[in-house]
Design a protein around this nucleic acid. Structure first.
Length: 564
RNA sequence: AGGGGUGUAGCCAAGUUGGUAAGGCAACGGGUUUUGGUCCCGUCAUUCGUGGGUUCGAGUCCUCCCGCCCCUGCCA
């Protein structure tokens, strides 16, 4: 069950087809209550695509007063591990959902699954095939030609039962036999051409250990697991439509509770990849630092980057659910992240690329403390006390010796406001022997204390700043898209998706920060005014924080300047 | 090529029984602003993949064609 009371979909949008279906099933009395499940295979880390499914399954259960199970689809011991189980649980919890006691494992059903398989054999609906994998593949036919029935298809029930029991008992080597459903080798739906139900696999399972040497396959396991758990609505992605016929067939033959599978389009996002294979490759080949690298579309990566779970939930709700293939612009996700952070991230000041400003008419030994509102639109949220002194740092980009038109920031002869502090006017530029700018010399207007003047004089620019003598240092990791093009899969002949990896997806700078930022609260994303949202990284040390940039602020000036 | 799925603006997406195209993101214009942020106002589909048909009336019904996606694991 969802711990989050979900409101109706945003924007006055109508219900998606799944919610409409559930509402109608409830209204018609087809179901008294609904039951969903989120069924990951523990063979990798959860990513944005899973978030869509999690929000759907848990969300729908919460909205309609039903329940949602967390079920691990762990039928392939070769690929699965408890490391993944643990990370999945952590990520689902982080996203904001709880499953209470409803944590299940397909592997817990192995015994029951086995019994169901024997029942199929007894009913003449399944048989042991002793062909090799290659022979089976060849006999399956292809898209246009029907398959042909193999020599073992007509084995007697007794022989099948005996063989299957001996498969379980470990009498045969891997690959010697498989159990197949006896359906229709000529079906136009390839899934129905006598699908494999069990294979012999001597592998250590992360939960059942070595208790089994045969393991059931997805098509046999999933529908039965759903049925046993009383899942009313089994929601999965579109690539399983072909499997629905088999899903229904198994439950029909067994005469057990009929769960219903409904498919929806999986999530695709520009500028990233979401396939498990590619994600693994990024990690294993060292293109990123790990599964939780802030550039990764994994939930653990997002978390480390400073993306709030609320923003992810909002995103999933706003993109909706349909059956049409989609590719959502990454910018939509960013918009959701900014929207949430704008409201909740406390403000602070840091300078990423500092240039020194000396205020020559400000007393050398004076220090003043100014109040920076933590939330400009909600004064009741309080302030951050910021020290101010004669020498400060401002952003290098905020000063130009030859200011272009519409440049509202600091330039020779120009007056600007230092946020919450004073108006300053640029007098001159001090250079070192090499001719590089060493400092910008300014004067301040003592009457402008706090950032306003008695004569109500307007300045167009307001700059963030950090007092030089009080400044701390912080490592700041500036992230950009992992891929340089919208669709990383769209690649020249002979290239792979790595072709468009963005070489500048990570830039590390040493920033000067307000002293209040020296030991930030873990996990709390803050806004560096005029720059973006930044989240302390676990790599932080006392007095030497490391920040990850979760998102930039919109930058209208960049647009204006680009246009000329 | 056989089966299945799907096509509404740059992107996501509503559109219950046919009645004259929601909303969000982006973009663009303007106002407010001690963040060139936020906020506010305005603009942004004579048209729903294409052609034909039924109808007083079609995104919604019928039909032809076209595009894209999925399926030939002892993966899920």
């Amino acid at each position: 069950m969802s711990s989050i009371p979900q409101a109706a979909p945003e924007g006055g949008a109508g219900k998606d087809f799944i919610r409409a279906m559930i509402a109608s099933d409830l209204a018609s009395g087809k179901h008294q209550s609904i039951h969903t499940r989120f069924p990951p295979e523990p063979n990798g880390y959860l990513h944005l695509g899973h978030a869509k499914s999690i929000c759907l399954n848990f969300g729908v259960a919460g909205e309609f007063g039903g329940a949602c199970n967390l079920r691990f689809d762990d039928t392939n011991p070769l690929k699965e591990s408890t490391e993944y189980v643990e990370s999945i649980k952590k990520d689902v919890r982080w996203l904001g959902f709880s499953w209470g006691e409803k944590e299940f494992y397909a592997s817990d059903y192995f015994e029951r699954l086995y019994e169901f398989a024997e029942r199929l054999i007894l009913d003449g609906k399944a048989y042991v095939d002793s062909q090799s994998a290659e022979e089976i593949r060849a006999a399956r036919g292809n898209l246009t030609t029907p398959g042909v029935e193999g020599p073992f298809r007509s084995r007697s029930v007794e022989e099948n039962l005996d063989l299957f029991r001996r498969m379980r008992a470990g009498e045969f080597p891997d690959g010697a036999h498989v159990l197949r459903a006896k359906i229709d080798m000529a079906s136009p739906n390839l899934v129905m051409r006598d699908p494999t139900l069990y294979r012999i696999r001597r592998a250590h399972h992360h939960r059942t250990g070595d208790a089994w040497c045969i393991y059931p396959l997805y098509d046999f396991t999933h529908c039965i697991s759903d049925s046993l758990e009383g899942i009313t609505h089994s929601l999965c992605s579109l690539e399983f439509v072909n499997n629905r016929e088999l899903y229904d067939w198994v439950l029909e033959q067994l005469g057990i509770f009929r769960s219903r599978q409904t498919e929806f389009a999986r999530l695709n996002i520009t500028r990233t990849v979401l396939s498990k294979r590619k994600l693994i490759q990024l990690v294993e080949e060292g293109h990123v630092a790990g599964w939780d690298d802030p550039r990764m579309p994994t939930l653990s990566g997002m978390r480390r980057r400073g993306v709030p779970p609320e923003a992810l939930r909002d995103f999933c709700s706003r993109i909706g659910v349909s059956r049409a293939e989609n590719k959502v612009e990454y910018g939509y996700l960013e918009a959701c992240i900014r929207e949430h952070l704008n409201e909740y991230a406390p403000r602070a000041m840091a300078v990423l690329n500092p240039i020194k400003v000396v205020i020559d008419n400000y007393p050398e030994d004076r220090v003043e403390w100014f109040d920076l509102p933590l939330a400009p639109d909600r004064p009741e949220k309080g302030v951050r006390r910021i020290p101010f002194s004669r020498e400060i740092y401002i952003e290098r980009d905020d000063f130009r010796e030859d200011a272009p038109p519409k440049f509202f920031r600091l330039a020779p002869g120009k007056e600007v406001r230092l946020r919450c502090a004073y108006y300053i006017t640029c007098k001159e530029v001090r250079r070192n022997a090499a001719g590089e700018i060493e400092a910008v010399i300014c004067s301040y207007d003592p009457e402008s204390r706090g950032g306003g003047t008695p004569d109500n004089r307007k300045v167009k620019g307001t700059l963030h700043w950090v007092s030089a003598s009080h400044a701390g240092k912080a490592e700041v990791r500036l992230y950009d898209h992992l891929f340089a093009q919208d669709d990383p899969e769209d690649v020249p002949e002979g290239e792979t998706f790595l072709h468009s990896l963005n070489p500048d997806s990570l830039r590390v700078v040493t920033a000067v920060v307000d002293p209040s930022l020296l030991n930030p609260a873990p996990g709390e994303t803050v806004q560096f005014e005029r720059l973006g949202y930044f989240c302390p990284d676990p790599d932080s040390r006392p007095d030497r924080p490391v920040f990850n940039r979760a998102a930039t602020l919109k930058d209208t000036w960049a647009k204006v300047e680009k246009k000329g």
